[in-house]
């Protein structure tokens, strides 16, 4: 059986700018595959090529065994798409959104009605079926967009940042729905810049930055391989940082500096490092915690995932002043 998705040396250029820089990856059927990276990493470009929206510039991309260049229509019949921006049909009701979308897939009206009702029930939207789309909450719109992507019972569901902009409760609800869909054997491909989301949902993932894949594997493998089980965050005054880093490198620890914080990735036994930190008077505070994917990303790129966002945010705050 062919892979759900297979990319070989896949590239995408926009007027000379390279958004995807020759990536190779494979997505197995039935898995939840994550594409992680900060804003501008090329995640959306990548999935838009998978669902045959953007033409491939170079390389080879197959979905369920078919080449995206040759068979876009038959590929699109077997894919469900949940784009980053909700693009629900605002002139239609909740239920009509599903029914009209079903018509694009040649689904007969009785079958469409039955599936629409099942999906509305599954996503807890039955009571809103006849409401105008504009009048339901953001979380509901998101769930409706996912329901719409499932109306033709696709083999792969592509979700571009499915929970961006949602409150924690809505996010958890969507995660729960996605887990249930995976249990039923649906292949999920999701992009996200939330590490907890990827850690919760994905079997395998790739970490992207500036159009390139930096690492790939399962979340636990990546953490073990890249940063070890635990991380120490130490707050230290920049003027005294060098001395600490010298001492740490003597213990063969890998470190990463971000602002006033030094992240210390501990290979196996933390006692030697903790002893060093305890006896260090230059240190303000430190804490030991289990490592996460965020640490993997920080180590790989030398910056936090939200770096681009943070910069933008600081700009906005400054303007507010």
């Amino acid at each position: 059986m062919p892979f759900a998705v297979e990319a070989q040396n896949l590239k995408k250029f926009y007027n000379g700018f390279q958004a995807v820089a020759g990536v190779n990856f494979r997505i197995n059927r039935g898995e939840c595959f994550g594409i992680l990276g900060p804003n501008g990493a090329g995640k959306t470009t990548l999935v838009e090529m998978i669902y045959c929206f953007l033409p491939v510039s170079e390389g080879r991309l197959t979905v369920l065994g078919d080449n995206v260049v040759e068979e876009p229509r038959s590929i699109k019949k077997r894919l469900g798409v949940v784009p980053q921006e909700n693009n629900l049909d605002l002139e239609l009701t909740v239920r009509e959104n599903l029914l009209v979308y079903a018509s694009y897939y040649d689904i007969s009206k009785p079958v469409a009605r039955e599936r629409a009702d099942q999906l509305l029930h599954f996503f807890g939207l039955s009571s809103k079926a006849n409401q105008e789309v504009d009048r339901i909450s953001g979380g509901m719109k998101r769930r409706l967009t996912i329901a719409r992507g499932l109306i033709h019972t696709p083999e792969i569901l592509i979700l571009d940042e499915p929970t961006t902009g949602l409150d924690p409760q809505s996010r958890r609800m969507i995660w729960e729905h996605l887990r249930q869909l995976k249990k039923r054997g649906l292949t999920l491909v999701l992009t996200t810049h939330y590490m907890d989301e990827a850690g919760q949902l994905c079997d395998n993932l790739i970490i992207m930055n500036r159009g390139e894949i930096l690492e790939e594997g399962s979340p636990s493998d990546l953490i073990r391989r890249q940063v070890g089980e635990k991380v120490i965050e130490a707050e230290v005054n920049p003027s005294k940082r060098e001395h600490l880093l010298d001492n740490l490198s003597a213990l063969t620890c890998e470190t990463q500096v971000s602002g006033d914080t030094v992240y210390i990735f501990i290979p196996e036994d933390e006692t030697a490092v903790v002893d060093l930190l305890k006896n260090n008077r230059e240190l303000d505070t430190y804490r030991v915690r289990p490592s996460t994917l965020e640490d993997v990303f920080l180590k790989l790129t030398g910056r936090g995932l939200d770096y681009a966002d943070a910069e933008e945010f600081a700009g906005r705050e400054y303007q507010a002043l």
Binding site: F53, R73, K76, K77, N87, D89, Y101, Y104, D106
Partner: peptide, 10 residues
Amino acid sequence: KIYHAIVATP
């Protein structure tokens, strides 16, 4: 963004 939504279908 209705065109974008429809183009994701066949």
